[in-house]
Design a protein around this nucleic acid. Structure first.
Length: 427
RNA sequence: GGAGAGGUGGCCGAGUGGUUGAAGGCGCAGCACUGGAAAUGCUGUUUGGCGGCAACGUCAACGAGGGUUCGAAUCCCUCCCUCUCCGCCA
């Protein structure tokens, strides 16, 4: 959520930053007008309330001082109290209406892009920052797509999973399931060693939590909902982990907080019909290890860089070629101010595919979820900066391994670092 | 699912409808005492909105939302959550 005060005081700057995402889509003027009306009414209300409070206090004092509770003096005060109450009651619906409208508008605004986020209209204008692992690019010219090799090896059952659920679900079998599990364990172990505290959060989350991280209200179509319970299947561990600290006031000394979490993730993939229909690149249910940081605003840029490095470290350990791109303003996620994607090399497609997205949300989620911190000896509280990144998407990592480690004879080598966990060298 | 109990400040815990934003305690911070510390004493210690350079003023908040009243933490209604016991169950 954006800071209403900031919008009010720096309207032109805010509007310009919003325009960087998309011209003409986000207009703050209507919001400013509602805000002006609301503040005017609120000011009147405050004054009436102050008088009403005084009357109440006065009546108490007079009665205790010996005035007749049924006398004319008290009756006059009561009468004035009643008049004020009538006035307050008359203006209340309007104030509430305005507040609701302002809140709804505010929740629908995306985060302001960071100054360092390159300006661009869409993903074609994202900027490549660096590449890693050219020396590990596979030399085999006849690499099968991951789903074909997986079928051949008998480690993924596509048909039966569809029978059990529907399309875009898979069932891992034998070494496939073991590899998935090994990847989860491997990634978590690395992140724990790097200082992240593992959590295993609920994977059903309520509407307030989804609003806190920014999936609601705009992206309700993207998540599965358990209608009877106001619970949703989490689309990413970002939601439950970030919301662990919702409505809390932390001590500055507690920061930074680093968490890593493995969870299944569930997405409807609405609007992506026909995209990536084969294989395990785009599923309704997939596994992911997520990194989440809660940090002091002053350190968030540095924390973002190290977060990206922590995600990269997994790809490097697995010796999978990848590149880092920085998203331009037109491709930036709703809640993010700045974002780097890690893209892993997929030989069968002949291109890099997203395997991790590392975002700095700055105070956007902190404000939505009321995650604050207090500095000793300083008045007031500040919103924490939150950051998160995949570390990594497990299914896509598996796909990358099945292709990059594929041998000419149709076998797949197990990455060295996974061999001890899996207890085998080849799939 | 059945039965019961309860939700008050960072924590524990009072609270008879009228200077209660809230006693008392713990914790924390500052000051005093000390060579230094402990102990002790004094002072301070919620959050948000609005106004103000600031001191401060004012409004709101005792799970949430309504209601009664001149006035509600306190009375009434609805909802949510937590805990205990029983049942079922990984």
């Amino acid at each position: 959520m954006l800071d209403l005060k900031q919008i009010r005081d720096n309207a032109a700057v805010v509007q310009e930053l919003l325009n960087r995402r998309s011209t003409d889509t986000y207009q703050i003027q209507p919001l400013l007008e509602l805000d002006r009306q609301q503040r005017e009414l609120e000011s009147t209300r405050t004054h009436l309330q102050a008088r009403s409070n005084k009357i109440g206090k006065l009546i108490g004092e007079k009665i205790r001082g010996g005035s007749d509770p049924k006398g004319a003096e008290i009756a006059a005060l009561k009468e004035e109290g009643n008049e004020i109450k009538a006035q307050l009651g008359a203006s209340q619906p309007q104030i509430e209406q305005l507040k609701t409208e302002i809140e709804e508008l505010l929740l629908a605004f995306p985060n302001l892009p960071d100054e360092s986020t390159p300006i661009g209209a869409n993903e074609t204008e994202n900027v490549e920052i660096r590449r890693w692992g050219d020396e590990y690019l596979p030399q085999n010219p006849n690499i099968l797509p991951h789903h074909d090799i997986a079928k051949q090896l008998g480690i993924i059952d596509f048909e039966r999973a569809v029978k059990v659920a529907q399309s875009r679900f898979v069932c891992l079998t034998g070494a496939g399931a073991a590899l998935e599990r090994a990847l989860i364990t491997f990634m978590l172990s690395r992140h724990i060693a790097a200082g992240y505290v593992e959590v295993m959060p609920p994977i059903l989350v309520n509407s307030t939590a989804l609003t806190g991280t920014g999936q609601l209200p705009k992206f309700a179509e993207e998540s599965f909902k358990c209608d009877k319970d106001d619970l949703w299947l989490t689309p990413t561990a970002e939601v439950p982990v970030t919301n662990l600290y919702r409505e809390e006031i932390l001590q500055a000394s507690q920061l930074p907080i680093y968490h890593c979490a493995y969870t299944p993730c569930f997405r409807r993939e609405a609007g992506s019909y026909g995209k990536d229909t084969k294989g395990i690149i785009r599923l309704h249910q997939f596994n992911k290890v997520e990194l989440v940081k809660f940090v002091h605003p002053e350190t968030s840029e540095g924390e973002h860089q190290t977060l990206v490095q922590d995600a990269e470290a997994i790809l490097q350990a697995l010796k999978l070629p990848y590149r880092v791109i920085q998203l331009c303003t037109g491709d930036l996620g709703f809640s993010a101010a700045k974002c780097y994607d890690l893209e892993v090399w997929l030989p069968s497609a002949g291109k890099y595919r997203e395997i991790s997205s590392c975002s700095n949300f700055k105070d956007f989620q902190g404000r939505r979820g009321k995650i604050r911190f207090k500095e000793a000896k300083k008045k007031g509280t500040q919103f924490v900066h939150t950051l998160n990144g995949s570390g990594l998407a497990i299914g896509r990592t598996m796909a990358a391994i099945l292709e990059n480690y594929q041998q000419p004879d149709g076998t797949v080598k197990v990455p060295e670092v996974l061999q001890p966990l899996l207890g085998r060298e080849m799939l």
